[in-house]
């Protein structure tokens, strides 16, 4: 199976949809890593390197958006969501400007660079900003659709993208993407695994392992973290009675937080999370880090078994 990183698909999508002359792309000295250089090669006149100045970049993006541009601004997720956080709030979200933040190298799969360059908290921070839409795609195909959707809606979008090459979850032919709507990848009646980003393919692997144990797990891909798809979550709660969330993020405030908020207010059922347990990451190979922090199909299986025991 061919693998592609979501950041790579992001760069390609920018080059593809970038024929719209209204689109501009900004970067902060990381264009080869964020892959905005793919856009730059095709449309150099609409690409601006702002240098190592993320806060400046975000407010420049806001200014261009006030003049009618659709602006993509890219850097690593840690700098996008935190170095420029208050600029995102006051220059972009508050005036509801048309800026799309292409935040790459999210999560711990950044690997060897270590905790200073990883993010376990970006979705929590971005979720709490009014007017912000958050998309965390699980593969290259979904990333392309996410970029298109981000262009189509007017307003702030945070695209959470990764460094690591990932297997394709979706098929080009029958893929349809609707912002704010989760995608059920596998039906099942015993438990539902709700995943986002690179945890989606791991959840499908976990579902296979559960099947071998006679457990029938439903798997849902939540690409839009905000607004979250309330309907698909409540339906899963009603029909399977137990939920496991899986995300490459702190257990606080990300997908787990969003799903738990929906459940307790609408249809409480037991929930177990596969997420990072409120600690910083560290240097290491991505696979070693997944093991260390329990972001594995094996841990999803374990949490599924546990949560099923908690069912009434």
């Amino acid at each position: 199976m061919s693998k592609i990183a979501t950041r790579e698909a992001y760069g390609k999508a920018l080059a593809e949809f970038g024929k719209d002359p209204n689109i501009v792309v900004l970067d902060a000295d990381l264009s080869k890593s964020t892959k905005t250089d793919t856009f730059q090669k095709v449309y150099p006149e609409r690409f601006f390197n702002i240098g190592i100045a993320e806060a400046n970049m975000i407010s420049i993006a806001a200014g261009m958006a006030t003049c009618g541009k659709t602006v993509f601004a890219s850097t690593f997720a840690v700098f996008a969501s935190m170095r420029a956080c208050e600029q995102i709030r006051n220059s972009i979200c508050y005036p509801k400007l048309n800026v799309k933040i292409g935040a790459t190298h999210a999560g711990i799969s950044v690997g060897e660079d270590g905790a200073s360059h990883q993010t376990v908290e970006d979705m929590a921070i971005m979720r709490s900003l009014p007017n912000m839409t958050i998309i965390c795609p699980c593969d290259g195909i979904e990333t392309r659709a996410a970029v298109k959707a981000a262009i189509d809606i007017k307003g702030p979008v945070y695209l959470r993208l990764g460094r690591l090459a990932l297997p394709l979850v979706h098929k080009e032919e029958d893929f349809s993407f609707e912002l704010g709507k989760g995608i059920q990848l596998k039906d099942g009646g015993d438990v539902t695994i709700i995943a986002t980003g690179l945890m989606v393919y791991k959840s499908l692997e976990a579902a296979e392992m559960l099947k071998a144990q006679g457990i029938d797990a439903r798997v849902i891909d939540i690409h839009t973290i905000k607004p979250i798809d309330k309907d698909i979550i409540v339906k899963a709660a009603k029909e399977t009675g137990a939920i496991v969330t899986a995300e490459e993020h702190n257990i606080i405030g990300g997908l787990t937080g969003a799903v738990a908020e929906v459940l307790v207010q609408n249809y409480p059922v037991p929930l177990k999370a596969v997420a990072i347990n409120d600690v910083f990451g560290k240097s290491g190979k991505p696979d070693e880090l997944f093991q260390e922090y329990g972001l594995t199909p094996e841990n999803i299986v374990k949490q599924a078994q546990e949560v099923i025991k908690m069912k009434k």
């Binding site: 660079d113 905790a115 200073s116 360059h117 560290k282 240097s283």
Partner: peptide, 13 residues
């Protein structure tokens, strides 16, 4: 340097 069980983090800690 930069290995999972090393104290030598990728960036100074």
């Amino acid at each position: 340097l930069r290995k999972i069980d090393s104290f030598l983090q990728g960036h100074p800690s």
